[in-house]
């Protein structure tokens, strides 16, 4: 259940059952994509805040969620691609959104959550937030975007290091813009959204036009385009692992 609240040039999109993304739930991805895109289409919206209905942004994935995601990717590749990877999909609609996007994060932020964070313009988090790298679980995750955001070695450290980042580390690396308390979190996100919403409407359009053009000069679009190949490679790796474990 996704709730959209419009107020003062800001749309707040609240994800209920957001962890359905962990199972690669195609219907949910479409709903979330629509909520973002429809909000962005309104002249009365200049900034979109994405948050969870639950106190924690994105809990760690369970084994059954992982398996469900694998089944979706294997059995409905085209639908999965359209919903998650393609320009029509969730993440590209977020990364190339024509209005400013923000995420508000408290507690654990597992892979799919971190991908939402990477794809948004601005992130405010609570001091107890922990960010898991999205690359092991999501073939549609964008490593070039991570490198452009975090710089090369920090991105590689996140991918390979196996440690989640705490709030301070995430801010130092440039994944998160501001750290505050849980109590102050929602207010801080709205404050940032409203600051951005003061830019005139034409100016928002111009800003996003420039940013989108820029992103594709850096290889981000190309990386999104590779996602189906990465999905195939991940499936092979998962099959290898399954065979290993039965041996």
């Amino acid at each position: 259940m996704i709730d959209v609240d419009l107020h003062n040039l800001v749309a707040v999109v609240t994800m209920g059952d957001g962890d359905r993304l962990a199972s690669a739930d195609i219907g949910y991805a479409q709903q979330l994509r629509d909520a973002i895109r429809d909000s962005a289409d309104l002249d009365t919206v200049k900034a979109i805040v994405l948050r969870s209905a639950d106190p924690d942004f994105f809990p760690p994935l369970s084994a059954s969620q992982r398996q469900a995601a694998q089944r979706v990717r294997a059995s409905q590749p085209r639908a999965w691609h359209a919903a998650f990877c393609a320009p029509t999909g969730l993440y590209q609609n977020l990364a190339y959104c024509k209005k400013f996007t923000l995420t508000q994060v408290a507690g654990p932020c597992a892979g799919p959550g971190s991908m939402l964070v990477l794809c948004t313009d601005h992130t405010v988090c609570a001091d107890d937030a922990r960010f898991e790298a999205p690359f092991a679980d999501l073939p549609e995750s964008n490593m070039v975007l991570a490198m452009l955001t975090l710089r090369l070695n920090r991105a590689k450290g996140w991918v390979l290091g196996e440690d989640d980042w705490d709030a301070a580390q995430a801010q130092a690396a440039g994944l998160v813009n501001r750290v505050t308390t849980r109590q102050a979190l929602a207010g801080a996100a709205i404050e940032a959204a409203q600051a951005a919403a003061r830019i005139p409407l034409d100016g928002v359009a111009m800003t996003k036009l420039l940013l989108e053009a820029f992103l594709d000069t850096q290889g981000i679009g190309q990386e999104f385009d590779m996602a189906p190949l990465y999905a195939d490679a991940l499936r092979l790796a998962e099959l290898d692992d399954a065979q290993e474990s039965t041996r």
Binding site: F100, D121, H122, T123, L145, L148, T149, L150, R151, G174, L175, V176, N177, A192, A195, A196, I199, P200, D202, G203, V204, A205, M206, T207, L210, L211, F214, T217, Q218
Partner: peptide, 24 residues
């Protein structure tokens, strides 16, 4: 609204930090 080159700022500080100065 943002005009100008973005590549220099992003190459210096990273994408999300750059957006902080650009927008927020």
């Amino acid at each position: 609204g943002v005009d100008g080159d973005l590549s220099m700022l992003v190459a210096a500080v990273g994408l999300k930090r750059a957006k902080d100065l650009l927008i927020f």
